[in-house]
């Protein structure tokens, strides 16, 4: 059997640990190093906790977005669903419902929105862009109607503790973000479901003919993206301790940007959870660092835009070389 594959030597490399997500993490480390050198306020406990709070909510919905992008789809509704679930939770709390029930209520609404997206994509065969564009409008409209476009407060202080508290010195929000990223990374790499997501993103027809339950997986993916947007909504409401009807506006584009900067391909099957998390951190670190260095916020927008173009060009260039 001399012609079979040569047994690889098992030297654990950086790439083994982070797999398909390695690129974004390297950029992130470089960025952290640069910021530490440029500003002595950057690597302080206060600032890092601040950074963590800024990134967590947006990072969690970016990971939901990533799952959808891996199937070669897109979810434009995550920002609106975030706003919807946050306000549903707030409304329930304001009506005197116990906190856990109110949170479940908010999450349930978000999952339902995700399920509707998934069913329309998988069974009606509508393009994800269109389906979720519709949901973007519907979810936002529903929030504005039932809140009358006004902020819902006051909410119980205990509820505010969820997003503003911390555990062993680390903000709760960061814990949650880490848990979501780690669990998703595990699901993507080690479970059958995760494998099916990549297979569908690569070639849905091939996957179907290999016995993959394509439609069920798609519905589940959109439902999970909805769920994570719901988690984001609950946390957003908790952090401000108020239900804001316009919360999450424009987050869908930030989430897509985080995925792309983290190495995901909008054509599907390329990218990973740590990559998306790193992408979210890169964007947040740029914003945070920009503030510390007193860089005009408008320039930061330009920089983030350029970063997306560079990330995608790099990906294209690499793809062309390997093909």
């Amino acid at each position: 059997m001399t012609t079979t594959a040569v047994k690889e030597e098992r030297v654990i490399t950086f790439g083994d640990v982070f797999g398909r997500d390695a690129g974004g993490i390297i950029v992130l480390l470089v960025l952290f190093g640069a910021m530490t050198l440029l500003s002595d306020q950057f690597l302080t406990g206060d600032n890092l906790a601040n950074l963590a709070r800024q990134v967590a909510i947006f990072g969690i919905i970016a990971i939901g977005q990533l799952l959808v992008i891996l199937t070669a789809g897109i979810d434009l509704s995550v920002g609106s669903v975030l706003g919807l679930s946050g306000c549903v939770t707030a409304e329930l709390l304001a009506g005197g419902v116990p906190i856990p029930v109110a949170i479940l209520g908010g999450l349930a609404v978000a999952v339902i929105a995700g399920l509707i997206n998934g069913l329309l994509v998988a069974f009606a065969g509508l393009p994800p862009f269109i389906v979720t564009l519709g949901m973007l409008g519907i979810a936002r409209g529903v929030v504005l109607v039932f809140t009358n476009a006004s902020t819902i407060q006051p909410l119980p202080d205990a509820f505010g503790e969820i997003a503003n508290g911390s555990l062993i010195g680390v903000p709760n929000l960061l814990w949650l973000f880490a848990v979501v990223a780690i669990v998703t990374a595990f699901v993507l790499r080690r479970t059958v479901f995760g494998r099916y997501i990549y297979a569908i993103g690569s070639n849905p027809e091939s996957a179907r003919l290999a016995g993959v339950p394509v439609k069920r997986v798609l519905v589940a993916v959109y439902a999970i993206a909805g769920l994570l947007a719901g988690v984001g909504g609950v946390l957003f409401t908790s952090r401000l301790n108020a239900g804001i009807p316009t919360a999450g506006t424009g987050y869908e584009l930030n989430a897509i940007a985080a995925c792309v900067i983290g190495g995901a391909s909008l054509f599907g099957a390329k990218g990973g959870a740590f990559g998306a998390a790193a992408g979210a951190l890169i964007v947040a670190t740029l914003n945070n660092g920009g503030n510390l260095l007193a860089v005009n916020a408008f320039y930061l927008q330009i920089i983030i835009g350029l970063l997306i173009l560079v990330a995608v060009s790099f990906d294209q260039w690499q793809g062309r070389r390997s093909r």
Binding site: Y198, A199, G201, S202, N203, E205, S206, L209, A269
Partner: peptide, 9 residues
């Protein structure tokens, strides 16, 4: 290519 392989994987 169209109906068998998943080329990215």
């Amino acid at each position: 290519k169209q109906l068998g392989l998943m080329l990215e994987l």
